[in-house]
Design a binder for these strands. Sequence first.
DNA 1: TTTAGCACTCGCACGAAGCGAGCGCCATGC
DNA 2: GCATGGCGCTCGCTTCGTGCGAGTGCTAAA
Lengths: 347, 347
Amino acid sequence: MVSNPAVIGDRARQLLRVLVERYISEGQPVSSRALARDTGFELSPATIRNVMADLEDMGLITSPHTSAGRIPTAQGYRFFVDSLLTMQPPASGEVRRLQSELDPDKDIGDLMETASNVLSEVSKLASLVLLPRRLQPVLRQVEFLPLSENRVLVILVTNEREVQNRIIHTARQYSPSELQQAANYLNSLCAGQDLHTVRETLLKELQETRERMNDMMRLAIEMADKAFAVPESEPDYVVKGQAHLLSRAETDSVEKLRQLFEVFNQKRDILHLLDQCLHAKGVQIFIGAESGYDALEDYSLITAPYEAGGQVAGVLGVVGPTRMGYERVIPLVDITARLLGAALTQR
Amino acid sequence: MVSNPAVIGDRARQLLRVLVERYISEGQPVSSRALARDTGFELSPATIRNVMADLEDMGLITSPHTSAGRIPTAQGYRFFVDSLLTMQPPASGEVRRLQSELDPDKDIGDLMETASNVLSEVSKLASLVLLPRRLQPVLRQVEFLPLSENRVLVILVTNEREVQNRIIHTARQYSPSELQQAANYLNSLCAGQDLHTVRETLLKELQETRERMNDMMRLAIEMADKAFAVPESEPDYVVKGQAHLLSRAETDSVEKLRQLFEVFNQKRDILHLLDQCLHAKGVQIFIGAESGYDALEDYSLITAPYEAGGQVAGVLGVVGPTRMGYERVIPLVDITARLLGAALTQR
DNA sequence: TTTAGCACTCGCACGAAGCGAGCGCCATGC
DNA sequence: GCATGGCGCTCGCTTCGTGCGAGTGCTAAA
């Protein structure tokens, strides 16, 4: 019967800790003898075995087969992470590297990419960075440029420094000066508003001035209608360092790994998962199948949301085998999120 | 001794063809008996064996160990691809899919990404797409927007519809109207020129009008100097569908595969390789170690350059195990390059 | 030139045996 | 009551031997 891990004795906790640590570093079932040697206690293997039996009853460890050592179960990892883990702050070199690479002057796409790259390299795991969803982008300036065949290139500058551009099709060909006027009109009317409000403003304007509306305004509104029909660009993310997963792959689990890679490619499941982490407070950890996706069995996901200007902007994290060095990786993910947030805010 | 494959007899050619085809589809050494059954000839295995011995002498096939069947060597594949291959035009559905997904109205980054995605999905291999290097981008319009702390957001519209933006630092804070004037000046002076010529034009202007130069012009030139100092964005590429490589990985070659993934990440070697293909006429094929990179042993690379508006713009291709379905993949890479080129040109 | 036949070579699957790691349990000692 | 030492037992892993089957190379004959 599985009893409550809360009542677990102090000695058992220590033993579990050492067992998990050892399994993480060695990758092989841990025997009672090894534990007897490694823990501070002066205990014989036989005693250890008794405790291990208890831990097994609680569902925290298991033996892959009779007369092998024990390995942690998902629950075991969970308990370890929640209650036994002493975090190891990242090396100052790593922090410096993150700081210097996360240069606020970089293009936003670049920034995300380097964040992902550095995170994966430092953690030696695969990294994920959800691209920031611009919540309520505030319009700064609009620009229209005529292209051939009734097409117009729209440039939107939002949030002070982000540039979006798209192409819209118009009913007829407009001259550069017409477009210029329309843009001026829109800029004077709507600058500083977020894109949703912009549409409302225009609608109100349309009703109030229906009669005395001139051609220029009509054009402006036609253009704006199409230009601001925000395609609500679906969220996306960056994956880097998948090679790290391969290097630690147990030879038999290639198929598992392939599934994982497929999930990375499909995007749907990963996006869903990352979405859940978006509104969590800080670092969040999914161990093994906790995420609810089969492909992630045997793998853990560690995420942290990052902010930009006080608002949650996105999530980043790493994926690695369940037996990863949590005490190192968790702070790393945490600090990366903070530094990325700082870089974004500082821009 | 290795004799010249040119003098290879007709029957031997047929045999080699069938052998390679069979090995590609089955993945296992091909025996003389199997060959005797499969080729049209009414020959006994013994005869086949004689021919196979000849082929082995020529270095086209080899046996992994005595008394196993034969498998093609890299040379064998090469000969097969060069002289024995009857291409198989892509299914019309595949072509239609490519056509519909390669929508000229898409953002350029999107376009490259979908090209890579579709190519990898249809070929069931990993795909590479080198992003187009804009050769001599022609300036269409410049826009300056003041940011905080002496920083200015520069928006460059080039080649009619590509938008680049970067941030530059200035000596002092400029007002929006100052920047506007500077932009107007630059636009009237330089629109339609490519970015290199722009700098020259400005330099000439600087010398000719040194005395009667006013503040506005001075500002314009300061801005332009920084804005057009093109960072010559280093070439980059997209990889998709690596999962396909995993699904065909022989269990022992995980290490090889890891190396391959690392090469994908490092970018340097791959870029070098793709660069070589940039100026090749059409489809180019590297079999096994022919590329000169160890990590690509056991893998083949098939590339084709794609054009945009009559000029070579970039390269795309696929990477897969040497034993891939060349007759299907080669035309596929070819047509993808053409369609991508068409989409780019049509924009 | 082709073929049939035969000897030979390997790889591979299977089972048996031995070994060693590690556990569970029990009786004993503190 | 907890810790311990001892003992037997269970597996997994390795090694070895065996047999089998696939496939070849060679030779001699058609």
